[in-house]
């Protein structure tokens, strides 16, 4: 706790009205002596005028606060959508990674068939990539395009 006289000391210093009992207390109390020493200067410093400075208008502050509140509300409302979007990116990327890992060697073989020699010699090996693989690739590609379109359109909006 602070000294119980501190408030009285600050008031006396402000009004420059000291009672004898307060003076004798200040002489004995280090806290109040320090307060009494700082008070006159602080009071003069506080009275130093800042009138040359024009404060921001309250209506402008009010308006800015409303605008900021609106922006904060939009961010709060769109947070679930942002999370869903991030999850979709993750799912699509994982899907591509899984498909490529699953059929990596078959894909390499399939790509090699596009060379002129490969087309003649290894055309039969194309069957190593099943129809379901192409179906998965189609789904993933469609999802990727949709996600990309959504991202671009959301950024434009």
């Amino acid at each position: 706790m602070s000294c119980s006289y501190e408030g009285n000391v600050l008031r006396a210093a402000k009004e420059d009205r000291w009672s004898e009992s307060l003076r004798s207390h200040v002489a004995e109390c280090a806290d109040c002596a320090a307060a009494a020493a700082a008070a006159p200067w602080m009071n003069r410093f506080a009275r130093m005028s800042d009138r040359q400075h024009v404060l921001p208008d309250p209506s402008v502050v009010w308006l800015k606060a409303q605008l900021m509140q609106g922006t904060a509300d939009v961010a709060r409302i769109s947070r679930p959508l942002t999370i869903a979007q991030l999850m979709a990116y993750f799912v699509v990327a994982s899907g591509w990674a899984a498909v490529l890992t699953w059929k990596w060697s078959a894909l390499q073989t399939w790509v090699r068939t596009f060379t002129p020699t490969g087309l003649v010699n290894t055309a039969a090996r194309a069957e190593s990539l099943s129809l379901s693989f192409f179906a998965i690739v189609f789904v993933l590609a469609t999802t990727t395009v949709m996600l990309a379109m959504h991202t671009i359109l959301a950024e434009d909006a």
Partner: peptide, 20 residues
């Protein structure tokens, strides 16, 4: 803490008094 305020304020006042 309010207890620390007492000490910190005392030091600040002393420092101001020294400067003055």
């Amino acid at each position: 803490k309010p207890k620390s305020v007492k000490v910190l304020l005392f030091r600040a006042r002393k420092r101001l008094a020294e400067l003055l």
